[in-house]
Design a protein around this nucleic acid. Sequence first.
RNA 1: GCCCGGGUGGUGAAAUUGGUAGACACAAGGGACUUAAAAUCCCUCGGCGCAAGCUGUACGGGUUCAAGUCCCGUCCCGGGCACCA
Length: 904
Amino acid sequence: MQEKYDHTATEKTAHQYWERTAAFKAVEDASKPKYYCLSMFPYPSGKLHMGHVRNYTIGDVLTRFHKMRGYNVMQPMGWDAFGLPAENAAIANKVPPAQWTDENIAYMKLQLKSLGFAIDWSRELATCKPDYYKWNQWLFLRMLEKGIAYKKTQTVNWDPVDQTVLANEQVIDGRGWRTGAVVEKREIPGYYLAITQYADELLNDLDTLDQWPERVRLMQANWIGKSTGVRFAFPHQIKDDAGALIDDGKLWVFTTRADTIMGVTFCAVAAEHPLATHAAQNNPELAAFIEKCKHGSVMEADMATMEKEGLPTGLFVTHPLTGEQIEVWVGNYVLMSYGDGAVMAVPAHDERDFGFAKKYNLPIKPVVMPGGLSLKTDATPVQPGEDASAIRPLEHLWAHSWNVGFGMHGELINSGKYNGLNYEQAIDAIAADLAAKGLGEKKVQWRLRDWGVSRQRYWGCPIPIIHCDDCGSVPVPDDQLPVVLPTDCVPDGSGNPLHKRPDFLNVACPCCGKPARRETDTMDTFVDSSWYYARFATPGNDQAMVDERVNYWLPVDQYIGGIEHAILHLLYSRFWTKVMGDLGLVSYREPFKRLLTQGMVLNHLFSRRSDKTGIEWFAPEEVVLQKDEAGRVTGATALRDGNPVDYGGFGTMSKSKRNGVDPQSMMEQYGADTARFFMMFAAPPEQTLEWSDAGIEGSYRFLKRIWAFGHVFATTIQPQLPGQRKLGNAKLPENLASLRREIHLLLKQANYDLGKQQFNTVASSTMKMLNALEKAPRLIDQNGGIAAEVIEEGLGILLRVLSPLTPHITHTLWAELGYAKSADESILDAAWPEPLDAALVQDEIELVLQILGKTRGSVKVPAGADNAAIEALAVVSEIAQKFMEGKPAKKVIVVPGRLVNIVV
RNA sequence: GCCCGGGUGGUGAAAUUGGUAGACACAAGGGACUUAAAAUCCCUCGGCGCAAGCUGUACGGGUUCAAGUCCCGUCCCGGGCACCA
């Protein structure tokens, strides 16, 4: 074998072998447990970034590990290929998005191949291809039939110059990003998917996802936002100009605290509420305020700090239980989009209402005595630590905003017939009374909204609808699917280019046959990514969305991706799965059994602030770091002018901050194995990873040492191997037994860590194995062939444990050093190593010796010794005698295999 | 504001879930080889101390034979959510 490590040659050899043997082709096989390992598919933006490399390396390590463990593994890859960046690139380069996308896919595929990922490329898919998106359209039509998809008007950002709809991120300070024109809000029709029909199941099934990170489940639960309460109405006689009762004479509100209804002193409605609109007609001040509220809501950042403001409408509604007249206010803190756009206000028990009431001098009426407080003779509560003789009226307590009531449950007071009831009793009684009057009932309110999927965009999956003047919006018949998107359009930024394509637009109505128009809206790209993992299981089927194979491979056993998809993508995919399940297409209810959210890749940030140009960012290779004598970074100077730049610590790699590292140049210089190893070694997978050039060098050094040891093995150890092997359970001389034990202990640790998906310590274990083996060759002089056998076994273990991380170098060494049993066998076919009990046993074990809980040293005891024997040995040991200072042992704690603690 | 994570050497981190804190690596310092440099190899490396030893996991308490790990309180850092009624 070659003496020096040549990563280019090594990687080429391995790639050719995998290609030639179709090593990663996955075929259904009922005789083996299956393992479907999936990394979130990339958007073909042009080239891979380090986040991709990290993501796919994690997936590949798991894939290869399971393959060697005997699982039937499948790791596919595809392209999330529709989306806005392709349109933007088209505008900039005057190239059709399809062409740009295809070119990017071709390049990125090469990059993925050069990283050596064990991907079954025969299952590759791109969401922009008709054979994929046909099934988006097909399922959309099924949803339409079941009432899960429906049409309603939606508000969009409209650029009046470009005549186009803008995504939220394309609106900058209220203006279009390209034209600078003031963006208008427009109401246009669009299609929605009723994800809220599945809200309950989506929430409840989170409990079954016990192999998901807790925080992701929490984020989803918050997003779904279930709250149970009572929806009820305040009757009124307020009429509009035509003389009709506004909202049928009922102001509906939702509350989770129906027990405090008797404490309502006013109501607040959103600026867009019909009552507000009505009241503003003859009230310029109110009209101005409402206008301000509507505009204010655009600026997200101000929302958080915004002061609670309001104005009275002068309108009154009737309290449904007391009959009192309740004034209606417009409040800037009431959202039209949540519930009914109106709230009851109970200042005594809600912090926000309280602040509002204090500001505008509205009455505060306490109706709940918080639990845990006792009452004084005048029925006021005693504060913890307060002198019980102090007499204060109830109102005084709240007027001083002593927070005894906000959000707390307790017994009702000041509430007439409900006095004395607790939280649950009060809600039941009040809900019953409201129901009897036809003015309310218990209700569950969700934060989750239906999913608007219409996008007024060209580069997406066409929505399969035809608009006919006579028949209305008609679904495209199944036999006319797919509705194919023309791929030769070049968007220029003004409007949807499909509008200029008569060949696409003009079509006969499927109902009546008259000329009609095709829908030009396309689907949200989240639709594309909501089921691609299922299609991977059934490649090549042009007759059905999925087939029986889907129930073999799915659910995905391990899904890996960024935390940024914790909510939308994962929630939509779960929803889509449930819909597919209800249509009888799949037999599982959750798509992803186990989820790993990998951390981001960070790098140093360098910048310089100048008055003229603002912030200028420096790439790490453009600066020189300054360090103090301890090696701590104290500052940096620019290479180009020698002047200082600001060091901003670590931040996520980004184009704009110029701190990204290009995987391509990395791989050319050091190779894929080094990149992969560093990624795995530098941090546990879920944590952020700090890029380090020195760390890369270190990983490279390790691989060079592995290779060098392989060379030593081939030249000096292998020739010593006896023809007849006798290692097995053989009794070895202590120096060999100890080396062998060390390797097997490290293997045990590595297997344990792999189970935990803690790959950084797996990498550590392989380094420790090499450290041990490098010292071993001299053992041959004393022990001959048997030592060579121990080393051979150790290196074989090391290569296999390392192989999921650095598959190329281990592939080559495995073959070159004679580990492969035949020419068509590679390390991938080797069984994963397991530690041998025979290698782990030892005659004597060393226990930690503590006196009074303080570690003082260690004591050697025979391996089989029982607690009493260990105790006896420990007490008479030299160290124990020294530290016990002649005092008798009061108690001795023996933790088998670990330590002895003597208490005196 | 609420909800999650975190806080361990100069740095990234480890500690088999209550049992020798700092494994493994990076950086730094010293040495060997070399005409020299690079590469490689060896040694040192939490703090104090010549040493025995003492001390040390953000801070203050507690439980325990034993606490980085568990409990209570405080202070920071990161992330998510939010006028959600």
